[in-house]
Nucleic acid binder design. Sequence first.
DNA 1: CCTATAATTCTAGATTTATCGAATTATATA
DNA 2: TATATAATTCGATAAATCTAGAATTATAGG
Lengths: 104, 104
Amino acid sequence: MDHDGVAASLAELGNTHRLAVFRFLVKAGHNGASVGEIQKALDIPASTLSHHLARMAKVGLIKQEKHSRTIVCIPDYHHLQNLIGFLQAECCIGENMEPGAASL
Amino acid sequence: MDHDGVAASLAELGNTHRLAVFRFLVKAGHNGASVGEIQKALDIPASTLSHHLARMAKVGLIKQEKHSRTIVCIPDYHHLQNLIGFLQAECCIGENMEPGAASL
DNA sequence: CCTATAATTCTAGATTTATCGAATTATATA
DNA sequence: TATATAATTCGATAAATCTAGAATTATAGG
């Protein structure tokens, strides 16, 4: 993931609703949750939620699988790990190594 | 840092210019860099840069110290670590523990 | 005091984002 | 086929963000 890709993903997580959705999906685990379940749990109007989910899927934070009528949303842990790795790398170069901090 | 605080910080990092500024400051190390140095290095118009720096300072990503005429910007590593910790926690709860993944 | 420098604030326009009801599409089922 | 359900797309509005030139503030130095 390059600079702009990282920025794009962080921007998506940088919205309260979307962050809440992502956290909910992580809690839901590898099976994910349907759009309806998310909607019920977080109480976001359907069209608004759909908009946010589409954005998250676009940058790769989540995957969406259609099973007949319902669409299941699954968080992409690998994507998040890449993000975290990028930030971690940012944090640990230069003179800012604290004792015990992991280097890469 | 709570949910909204995390979202706010991620949103700030989720902008190409601001992410570039933050990366530049991390490379600069604990001494940070002056607004002018950032401006010269990244070639962003002064007023635009000032706007972005103010936003970053507001959420706590950077600190700003005034030394006579120049303002030195210093990244807040602790703040970033908090952010990373939050994301890491998000990533590692639920069923998504991979072998070797750190738990908290 | 005057000038140059560092940076911010002001201002305004362009773009993007957020919101959500209404209409639409797709699918299951009676 | 008719109906209900799941979700998206449409459309329109409000709000926030981005951008950058011009004006302003603060300070150093001649």
